[in-house]
Design a protein around this nucleic acid. Structure first.
Lengths: 257, 257
DNA sequence: AGAATAGTGTCTTTCAGACATTATGTT
DNA sequence: AACATAATGTCTGAAAGACACTATTCT
C-alpha cells in the first residue's frame, strides 16, 4: 500500500484493504442532504412545517424542508442555512440540533440520498411562503399528520424528532425556544402540554419545580399586566444560564407510551 | 421546472430552487463513511478498539475502525459489516447503535468525508488482528487515551460515544451487552463501575433496584458455584424482555460532571 | 361580589442512599 | 473458625403528586 497517487495512504475513515480493492462503482459517492423538522406552537398545538411536493415521485405528498450539503460546508451549517433560506427566520431566533442520519439505500427511489435529519424549534413565526418553485409550504398540527400523505421516510423522521423533542423537554430548557421572551410559567406549561399532547395535572407543582432549579429560569423582575381574562399577574421570565432541569420533570406515563 | 432529464423533478430532500441553480462543483458529492467506537471490558476497565494509522496524514496516530458505505448499502448495515470484517465477531454477538454524524468540511484534510459514527458493545473478544495492511489494531483502556495521539476528530467522537454509553447505562440494559451470559448482578455492577469510572457506593441497593424492575433481568434459576474466593453463590441472570430500567439508576454526581 | 389565574402550605407516597443484619458459600 | 460474597431489613431524607388554601387581578 504505497502507491504514488493521491490516495496512496489509507483514508481516514476506511482501511487500506478497501482501497486495495477499490471499485468506483461500489463506492459511488451518495448525495448528502439535510432535512429539518421545524416545530412551533400554533393555537395551543404543536405544529410542524411541511412542503408539498409538486413533482414525482411522491407528488402531492408532504415533505420536510431540506437541501443538499454544499461541498465546503459543515453538515449542521447546511441545516441552519436551509432553514434560514426557506423560512426567512434569522439565525439566533431558533434552536437547531442534529437528530439522526437516515441512510436506507432506497429511501429516495431516484438516486442514493443520505439525509442527516435535524430538528428545530422556534417561537412566533409567520407562515413561510413556498420556495421559488410551485411547492406549497405550511404548518400542520401534529395531530393532523395521521391523515396526511408524507413523502419518502419522512413519517419516520418526524416520529423520531417528536420523540426526541418530547424527551428533551423533561430535562432541558429547549421548551423556552418555542416561546417569545419574556414568558410566564403558565405559558411555558402550555408549551409542555402542547408538545406532550397531555395536560399537566398540577400547574402549581410544575411551576414550583421549575423555580426550584437554580439558574433554569431568569426572572425579569416584571409581571404581566392587563389584557388577560383576570387573575393575579404572573412573573415574567427568560431562559436562565442553566439549560439542564434537575431534577427532571417527567412526562405523565400515559403520554410516554 | 419541467425539464425532461432525469432530474426534472425536485429531489426528495432538496427543493427545486437548488436544482434550478445546480452547480456540480458546489454540490460535489462527499464520501460517506462509518466509524465505530467498539467498547469492551478488559481487566475490569473499559476498553476501546483503535487502529494505528500506517500512512499520512496522522501517521502513527490512532483511529476508530471504519470504512466507506457501499452504494447499495444501508448506513447502519455498513457499520455492522465493517465491525464483522475487522474484528471477526459474529452478528448478534454485539450491540450496535448509531451515535451521530460528523460533517465538518476539513475533518479529513485530503477529501471531503462525512462520517456517520456508531458505537458498539461486546463481551469477551480476542484482540483482533490488524487488517490486511500493516496497521496495528489493539484495545486501549479509556483511561490511557489522554496520552494517546488520536487521528482526525476521533477524540471528539470517542468522547461523545463515551458520554452516550455512560448515559444509556442509567436507563437501559445495554450494559448486559458487555457481558457473556449468564452473569451475576455483581458482574453487571462491575461493568457499571468500569464504564462510569467510579465505584457504586452500595452494591446491595444496586442489586435490589435491578431486581425490582420487572422483566429487566431474566433469572436463569441456577447460581454460581466454585472457582471463587468464597462467599455465598450468586444467582445467574440473562437480559430480560424489558430493555428499559425504570426507575433509572443514575450515575453518582461525581462522574456525571 | 364573583370569576379567573398565580402562587404557597402541607400531607402522603415513593424512592435513593446509608447502614445493619442475615445467609451461604470457600479456605 | 475466619473470611468473603450475596441478599434482606430498616431507617432517613429528598422528591413527586394530590389537594387545600391564600393572593391579586379583571369584569
Amino acid at each position: 500500500m504505497n502507491k504514488t497517487n493521491d490516495f496512496s495512504e489509507e483514508t481516514s475513515d476506511a482501511e487500506d484493504v478497501f482501497l486495495a480493492t477499490y471499485d468506483p462503482d461500489k463506492y459511488a459517492r451518495p448525495s448528502v442532504a439535510v432535512d429539518i423538522a421545524l416545530f412551533t406552537i400554533r393555537n395551543g398545538a404543536l405544529n410542524i412545517l411541511l412542503i408539498e411536493r409538486a413533482g414525482h415521485p411522491n407528488k402531492g405528498h408532504w415533505a420536510l424542508p431540506g437541501g443538499f450539503v454544499e461541498s465546503d460546508e459543515d453538515v449542521t451549517d447546511a441545516a441552519y442555512r436551509e432553514l434560514v433560506e426557506e423560512t426567512g427566520i434569522e439565525m439566533g431566533e431558533f434552536y437547531l440540533e442534529q437528530l439522526k442520519t437516515y441512510g436506507a439505500p432506497q429511501r429516495d427511489p431516484r438516486t442514493r440520498v443520505i439525509s442527516v435529519a435535524h430538528f428545530a424549534l422556534v417561537g412566533q413565526i409567520e407562515t413561510p411562503h413556498a420556495g421559488s418553485d410551485a411547492a406549497q409550504a405550511r404548518f400542520w398540527s401534529i395531530e393532523d399528520l395521521t391523515e396526511l400523505p408524507l413523502a419518502f421516510d419522512h413519517a419516520i423522521i418526524i416520529a423520531d424528532a417528536l420523540e426526541r423533542v418530547r424527551s428533551k423537554l423533561e430535562y432541558t430548557s429547549i421548551a423556552t425556544s418555542l416561546l417569545e421572551e419574556p414568558f410566564t410559567i403558565s405559558e411555558l406549561r402550555k408549551v409542555y402540554e402542547a408538545v406532550w399532547g397531555t395536560p399537566i395535572a398540577d400547574a402549581s407543582n410544575f411551576a414550583r419545580k421549575l423555580r426550584a432549579c437554580e439558574g433554569f429560569l431568569q426572572p425579569s423582575g416584571s409581571a404581566t399586566s392587563g389584557a388577560s381574562k383576570g387573575g393575579r399577574p404572573a412573573q415574567l421570565y427568560g431562559p436562565g444560564v442553566n439549560p439542564i432541569l434537575y431534577p427532571p420533570f417527567l412526562r405523565p406515563e400515559t403520554s410516554s407510551v
